[in-house]
Amino acid sequence: MKYSRREFNKLMVLSLVTFSTSEASEGGRSFLRPPGALGEERFLEKCIRCQRCIQVCPKRVIFPLSFAEGIKRMNTPVVSFRKSYCNSCLKCSLVCPTGALLPVTEATLDIGAAVIIEKDCVAWDWVGCTVCVDECPEKAIYLDEHKRPVVEPEKCNGCGICELKCPSTSIRKSAKGKGILVKPRQAGTLPRDPSLHKKRDTK
């Protein structure tokens, strides 16, 4: 088979289209990245998509992003608390070969911040559930005067225990998902304050 000029041009056009679509993807932080991740722009520059952080995670919370999330982001690591939570072993931030994840300590660990999903949270319109408040190792969630959970983002390290343990879907049929989700810190949300860190006994 001879490789024709037409085929070559086709390949080039195809690759250019790929570049332009990847360029079109919006900036800003919209994915939950592993501990110590740089800002989204810098992260995409530095991440070599080697999957090392995914391999090392003992709690299995880091996964490669699917092709569906954009060609520029595919295979980059994201955190998912559907089946597990982060025990802050911090190995992922240490093994990154390119510095897309920078080493963090337990006090500076900041994956994201938990957000109460009011329509799905059982305690929001019916008192009684205190699971997230009880489980939070950082004591970052408290109950207000109506016994509704409230997150203090400056204490939250985004470990995901609250999201993992939230029983909303098993308690109530109408709940579409978990009543509390860890989300990337949006503009306006306070950053984590390392001085408020609670020492944990167990890992």
């Binding site: 080697c50 999957q51 090392r52 995914i54 391999q55 190995k91 070969p97």
Partner: peptide
């Protein structure tokens, strides 16, 4: 290595 949480990484390393 992934299953055992050791870290040789893929060839990308």
């Amino acid at each position: 290595a992934t299953a055992g949480n050791t870290i040789p990484g893929t060839f990308c390393n």
